[in-house]
Structure formats: structure tokens, C-alpha cells
Computed example of a mutant assay.
Amino acid sequence: MPKTVSRAAAVAVLVLAVAGCERQPVAAPAAGPVVTAIGDATSIPPPPAEREPVTQPAPVEVAVTFPQTGSGQWMFTPGSDEVAGARGRLMRYRIAMETDIDGVGPAEFAARIRAILGDPRGWTAGGQWRLQHVGPDEPADFTIYLATPSSRNKLCGGTPDGYTSCRNGSNVVLNVARWANAVPNYGASLEVYRQYMVTHETGHRLGRGHELCPGPGRPAPVMEQQTLGLHGCVPNPWPFPDGRAYAGPPGEYDDPIPAGTS
């Protein structure tokens, strides 16, 4: 995708630190300026012209490509009026995508994040949380980044592995290498893995720790580190997979992190 975005209006270049929320500090991007991806997330498409209906082909999944070391420049998407969840504490989140990533547009990425976090099997199902995607100039409780492996290391802190995703303070960092490629031998589709990584890292921001597989053949708790190993469980991206809370014993395995960043 191009390194800047221009649609109905010119690209707006913002200061590095956007306005923070009084209730929670909001982490700044890893480095570089922030640009806004123009486009209304809540717009309704105009009605079709009065003519014969046209059958559209199914969308084709485009390969996501990225450099190992990104620019540290971020495209923030406009927010949405929609609030996921009927009751509970409202948590607002921003969505940012590093400009070097191709094969997924910022609007498409934001729509996928909203769909995952708004799924009735997700964190809002228990009535403890409501979630809303807000724009870059609005107060927020956390920011979801789609980051190259090097920017993942800057945002996550700690030991730089370039492989996993993380939550660090108010950063929910999705490693684009995992978004593009999932992990070997996961046993489910790329879409299921993406649902897992978003829900797992957001779960950390909501105060949840790691969990263990409750038994062979059972669904993995979403807070199990499924990226590193399933330990007899089967993939599961949801905390409420059948409308009821599902979890495993607290703890984590001593799984090695694979070498490399692909």
C-alpha cells in the first residue's frame, strides 16, 4: 500500500503524541510521525442504482507483505459510533497500522478488529466490558498496533524476539508476521488464528493472565499461549465460545520462542 493515504481529504499529519485519556495513559507510537488514514468508518454506502443486480465475485485474500524493519510511521483509522457489548465498563481503543505493510488496507484492518472484538463470543459476552473503536484524536484506554517485527520489539519492550505479539501497558501489539503467516501446525485457519491473537492480547489489556490447557482434546483457553504450543488442546479464539465463560488453570508453559521473525 502507499506510504501515505489520500481519499476524500488530504492526509493529516499529526503530532507524535496524540491526546491521552485521563483515566489511562496512552502509549505513543514507536517512532516517526503519525498520519491519519482518511475514511469514515461509520459511513453507510449509497443505495444501488435502479438497474439489473450485478453479482460480485467473492473477495480474494491478498498476501500480506512487510519488511522486517519498518519505518515506525503509523496510520490511525477513524473511529466508529458502534459500541460492542450491552453493559460493563467502556474501554475505548485506537487502531494503528504501520505504513510499510502491504496487502491489507487500514480500513479493512480496522473492520476486522472491530468484528473480532464485537463478536458475541468475545470479551463483551460476560457483561464486564464494552468496547469501542475511537479515532486518533479521541481519549482511549489502549491502542492496537499492527507492527513490523522491529517495531513490535520497540513497542513491547523486554527481550526482543521479533516473533510473538504482546501487550505492554496500553500497547496491544499485533506482530504482522503472525497476522500474515499464523504459526506452524496451528491446526486451524488463518482467520481463526487472527481472532485468537487479537482476543488474547486484548485479554491481557483487560487484566487477564496466561492459562494452561485443561485437558487433551479440549478447546484451548484463549489466554493459553497458543502461538507457542497447544499442549494437547485444540485451537480456540474465544473466551465465551458457547456463550459461557471458558478458561483453564492459571499458569504458562516454558515453551521456547522460535528463532527468526517469519
Rank of each mutant, 00 (worst) to 15 (best):
P2V: 08
P2Q: 13
P2A: 10
T4S: 15
V5H: 14
S6L: 14
V11L: 11
A12E: 12
A12T: 15
V13F: 12
V13S: 14
L14G: 14
V15L: 14
V15A: 15
A17D: 15
A19W: 10
A19V: 11
C21A: 10
E22I: 13
E22D: 15
V26N: 12
A28H: 07
A28M: 13
P29R: 00
A30Y: 11
G32W: 11
T36I: 12
T36L: 14
T36R: 12
I38W: 11
G39E: 08
T42H: 10
P46G: 08
E52P: 11
Q56A: 13
Q56L: 12
A58S: 13
P59N: 09
A63T: 11
V64T: 06
T65E: 09
P67D: 10
Q73M: 07
W74V: 06
P78Q: 13
P78N: 14
P78A: 13
V83Y: 02
A86R: 14
R87M: 12
R87G: 11
R89Y: 10
R89W: 15
R89D: 13
Y93C: 07
A96S: 01
M97E: 04
D102K: 12
G105I: 06
P106T: 01
A107T: 15
F109S: 01
A115D: 03
L117T: 09
G118N: 02
R121H: 05
T124M: 03
A125K: 03
G126Q: 08
G127E: 05
L131E: 01
Q132E: 09
Q132R: 09
V134N: 07
G135A: 09
E138L: 11
P139Y: 08
Y145M: 02
Y145I: 02
S150A: 14
S151T: 11
L155G: 01
G158M: 09
T159K: 15
T159C: 15
D161Y: 08
D161E: 05
G162L: 03
Y163V: 02
V173L: 12
A177E: 03
R178K: 07
N181S: 12
N181Q: 13
Y186G: 01
A188N: 01
A188T: 00
E191T: 02
E191C: 02
V192D: 00
R194W: 01
R194E: 00
Y196C: 02
H200V: 02
H200T: 03
R208A: 14
G209H: 09
E211D: 03
P216Y: 03
G217H: 04
P221G: 06
E224K: 06
Q225N: 11
Q225A: 14
T227H: 04
T227I: 08
G229C: 04
L230T: 04
L230A: 06
L230Q: 08
L230V: 07
H231G: 07
P235W: 00
P235Y: 00
P237I: 02
P241A: 02
P241N: 01
D242H: 06
D254L: 10
D255G: 06
D255K: 05
P256I: 01
T261L: 05
